[in-house]
Design a binder for these strands. Structure first.
Lengths: 344, 344
DNA sequence: TTGAAAGCGTTACCAC
DNA sequence: GTGGTAACGCTTTCAA
């Protein structure tokens, strides 16, 4: 029998485990320290050119990839920015916003990671995030309490930023108050002479966080006037829309804010099928300014929403990370403007 | 001068760094090993009830959160499933698919993480992912070559699954061949007597990966017949659509496959504004079966796309992880069926 | 210019 | 039952 000596590094075509810097060092005939110096381009230490080449060569040959966990364990910190992945599929507005933010943070050399927090809620989720020891955490929505913020900070997060309706003790807050959207729509309708305003409230789960404030915003917009606001629960579904349209005239409404452009299209179609004149008999306004709305006939009036730009927000995060002791930022960032087209 | 001894654990209300299991052990008056046993509920070792309580108490008081990096470094593996975050905002179909998958993997006790790979491409991206030592990697699109797969596997990934048009050497492949979608649309139009078929090709960046195959699919569907296929570049923009509609009659087409329902709506609107009868003069079909299409008049025919269910795919990943030596799976998973409504 | 060694937070093996 | 100790892969200080 011939014994084949198995040098770990060259054992076989399918090595049992990942090559380490030790393997690289061995192959290059240098110490682990030297490998680290070369691969990280450490400025303080000069390594001879031939050595550098040998190290690089060896690393390439072995397919060496540094171990992020070991590195950040040693360093005591990472550059990971964590955000929970949205539980419900996000709309185009939000998706674009996240994409941009991700890119901008990437340019600042952060690694952005979306964490799929399945069933976790509240402090449980915060603990799960904290296990990864992110340098910053961005949390949309209201999934995080003061306790959660404390947990994250204690475990090394230098910045916790919430994107939501309310600010949370200890965290930076980008206030995205959807009441503004409703307020904008409500005022637009009121100014155009409408007095009996319906507000669509989606029945789909996960939308309450937006729907409630938008409704509330409309109420505020007409508070102290003679105008009335009627809540209209609606499922995103043709039958439900038809049913609502069928009893529309009995509701005696002269306008409706349809939550967003998609619900607006759904409802508008149903109202038109019912022979209700838009905007003469009922004015319809949506929100989000999707391309969709421009294509409808009549063209759909809407509320345009502007979220903070990626680079702007990225810089805020970066500043917060660099100076964790600074006072928490508290900034309104949801900008809403009415876009008047033909449906109102 | 009175020297205040700073026990790290109780130093101040704002500890400089995260509490470790050492801190918990010290506070509970036990060893680190015992802490580990208690907090991980290690079955093999029996710990007295009072000790357990003391440990839990201490952990709670300090707000102790285990350090994932240290844990997985020690364990030599993690349960992280990594997927690159989509560079362009994904549509509702894809978003829903990912949500479901994430949930299903979560139930199998995997941690799903979307990695924001900004400008990284190909093997560079693969290396960045490999640094995290994920147990499995799911890659949509064609961003990964055989080299990349090799890197990932060498660094410990037990399963690499691609979701895309082609299978990659060494990886499991869920083949999502969008030619099927085009083929489905093309055949539908042909069967309904259409012979001069236009195919919208979006000009937006990032869509080529889908648009090309969909176009190709239409070509295949009518290969060997007298039918012709005309490529129609189109930006997602009212003006572009109007311009295309203006020269529509000169194109002498009797049908168009509009890439998806959104482009279909855009084009259909422009054609209608031009006085072109749908479906009499030109049949229009979209894809993705969005709610949108049902609301248009005429109701939009479409191609319904079914992706694999979350639990199904999660189980595939799990199996692959448990048996990395098994032969790579290679399965077609994109199911397309025509939905005939009024526009064709 | 290079190497030896310590230590980051965990867990698992083996004594006590 | 409980506690010491080694080891995971990496970086960095110090010494040669």
């Amino acid at each position: 029998m011939v014994q084949i000596p198995k040098t770990p590094a060259v054992a076989s075509r399918a090595p049992r485990s990942a090559p380490t810097s030790t393997d690289v060092a061995r192959l290059a005939g240098v110490s682990r320290a030297t490998v680290s110096y070369v691969l990280n381009n450490t400025g303080a230490v000069r390594i001879s050119e031939p050595t550098r080449r040998r190290v690089h060569e060896a690393a390439r040959e072995l397919g060496y990839v540094p171990h992020a966990a070991a590195r950040s364990l040693r360093a005591g910190h990472s550059r990971m920015v964590l955000m929970p992945a949205p539980a419900i599929p996000a709309g185009p507005l939000y998706s674009r916003f996240f994409s941009e933010l991700q890119k901008a943070l990437g340019h600042l050399d952060y690694t952005v990671v979306q964490y799929g927090s399945v069933g976790l809620r509240g402090d449980e989720a915060a603990r799960a995030w904290a296990e990864l020891r992110p340098v910053a955490v961005l949390v949309p929505g209201a999934d995080l309490g003061p306790q959660g913020v404390a947990v994250l900070k204690r475990s090394g997060a230098r910045a916790v930023v919430t994107l939501g309706p309310e600010s949370v003790e200890g965290a930076h807050a980008l206030l995205m108050d959807h009441r503004t959207v409703g307020h904008c729509a409500g005022r637009h309708l009121y100014e155009r002479g409408r007095r009996r305003i319906g507000v669509v409230v989606p029945e789909e789960a996960g939308l309450e966080a937006f729907a409630g404030p938008r409704l509330d915003g409309v109420r505020r917009a007409v508070r102290g006037t003679e105008a009335t606001v009627t809540e209209l629960p609606l499922a995103y579904d043709e039958r439900a829309a038809a049913a609502l349209a069928a009893r529309w005239r009995s509701l005696r409404l002269d306008a409706v804010f349809a939550y967003n452009d998609e619900y607006a299209m759904l409802l508008m179609r149903a109202l038109q099928d019912e022979g209700i004149g838009i905007p003469q008999e009922t004015a319809v306004i949506g929100a989000d300014d999707l391309m969709l709305g421009r294509l409808l006939r009549p063209r759909l009036s809407t509320v345009r929403i502007r979220l903070p730009s990626g680079p702007q927000l990225a810089e805020l995060v970066d500043r917060a990370v660099r100076d964790p002791a600074a006072a928490p930022v508290r900034r309104r960032v949801l900008d809403a403007t009415p876009v008047h087209r033909e449906s109102t």
